[in-house]
Structures are given as structure tokens and as C-alpha cells.
Nucleic acid binder design. Structure first.
Length: 216
DNA sequence: GACCAGGCACATC
DNA sequence: GATGTGCATGGT
């Protein structure tokens, strides 16, 4: 089986097992971006509490959040962990919005995808996965998001080495699949959900993983 | 109490 | 260039 057919089969298997994901949970593109920073190496349940606190404080909006003293912002996002670092990262993202789009995320619609990606990556604390999550889930660009689960899962299924780099794994998907926002959205979501539900074990084989059939 | 969670930057060799 | 470490809360 070729890579494309194999990926499509895995996608179908996961979708049939889990159903569609409805990602990204966020009411606005700005909220999606905030969530992307807050969920770095952090369980989403902890991020939800921080998002609720920001909404309660009426600060889930660029200029309102920017008006917060850094220590108050850190206090609001405490439950998401790494709160001092993440407060600084949010601050950097807000400064980008101030300087590059006059607080209006819709102004980024005029940016070509690669240009927007580089713009996001210029913020300290926004790396490849965070930038790509924003591009796909907030800005609707056809960019495949790679994360730790993706590398773990596809290495375990013998499709890449354990040490595969981010851009290599991303290229594996994007070269094989159509540049389809809805497909990339759901596929990444399914990989994360599958990883959570079935593939936490460090053992080379995960007996109950719905993708195990593709090992052969 | 150990381990993990939808990373990233930085120091050191 | 590769490898190690700090950042921190909350659930299992």
C-alpha cells in the first residue's frame, strides 16, 4: 500500500472508531490562538480552566488582555501551568497583533500562508506546532499539525523513525494527502484523541490501538 | 508519589 | 548539531 492509501485507511479507521472531533474548541480565532499557546505540553482540561478564567475576567479579547498587568495575566492562567512563561508568550503574541494587524486578526487573511507562518514563528514561544495549530484551526489554512502523538504513533507503526523531525513528518502527510483544511483538522484531532485513549503505553505495540491492524 | 500532558527556548558540550 | 534542563498545574 502506498503512503497516501495507508494514511487514508488509518484516517478512516480512526474516524469510524471515534467519530468526528469538532476541533478546535474555541469561540473565536483569537481564543483558538490563546488556547494553542496555553496547551503547550499541558493537558487540555487544565487549559479549559484558564480560558474560563480569562472569559470571566472579560479578557478573552486582544486589547483587554493586553491591558492586563503581566502578573495578573499569569494569575488568570495559573491552572494551565508554566504560567509565567505562558503569560510572556501571550504578551509576545499580543504585541504582534498590535504591531502587525492593528488588533484585528482578520487582517491576517491578506497574508500568504508561508508569510503568516513566519510571522507567527517570530514570536518567542511560538514554535512549529503552535504556529501550525493557529494556521489550521484559527486561520483555516491547509497546514498539517504534527505533535508528539503523531511522531510516537507513526514511529510505532513503522512508518518513520523515532527521531523524525517535525517538518519531515509534516511533509509525509502533506505530500500524500490533498491540501484540505477539513481533512487536516479532523486527522490531527483524531491522532491526538487516539493517542490519549489508546496509545499511552510506551510498549512498542499497543494491543488495543485501533490502528494496530496497519502494522502488518 | 511517580508519571504524564495537544512545546519551546536556552545552556552547555 | 546534539543533548539536557527549566518551566508548573492538575489528573491518573
Amino acid at each position: 500500500m502506498g503512503t497516501a492509501a495507508r494514511l487514508e485507511s488509518m484516517y478512516r479507521s480512526m474516524l469510524d472508531s471515534l467519530g468526528s472531533s469538532g476541533w478546535w474548541p474555541g469561540e473565536t480565532p483569537f481564543e483558538v490562538c490563546v488556547g494553542a499557546i496555553l496547551t503547550q505540553n499541558t493537558a487540555w482540561t487544565n487549559v479549559e480552566k484558564a480560558i474560563a478564567a480569562l472569559q470571566e475576567a472579560e479578557c478573552m479579547e486582544p486589547q483587554a488582555m493586553y491591558a492586563l498587568p503581566p502578573e495578573e495575566l499569569a494569575a488568570l492562567i495559573r491552572s494551565a501551568g508554566y504560567f509565567n512563561i505562558k503569560a510572556a508568550r501571550l504578551r509576545g503574541f499580543l504585541e504582534l497583533l498590535r504591531d502587525r494587524c492593528d488588533w484585528n486578526l482578520a487582517a491576517f487573511d491578506d497574508f500568504e500562508t508561508g508569510e503568516l507562518r513566519n510571522t507567527l514563528l517570530s514570536v518567542k514561544g511560538i514554535g512549529p506546532e503552535t504556529a501550525d495549530s493557529m494556521l489550521l484551526y484559527a486561520f483555516g489554512r491547509p497546514v498539517f499539525v504534527v505533535d508528539a502523538y503523531t511522531a510516537r504513533m507513526f514511529a510505532r507503526h513503522g512508518m518513520v523513525s523515532e527521531e523524525v523531525e517535525y517538518h519531515e513528518l509534516q511533509a509525509l502527510f502533506m505530500d500524500a494527502l490533498d491540501q484540505d483544511v477539513a481533512l487536516y483538522n479532523e486527522f490531527h484531532a483524531l491522532i491526538v484523541r487516539t493517542g490519549k485513549d489508546w496509545c499511552k503505553k510506551k510498549a512498542p505495540l499497543c494491543e488495543t490501538c485501533p490502528l494496530k491492524t496497519f502494522l502488518d
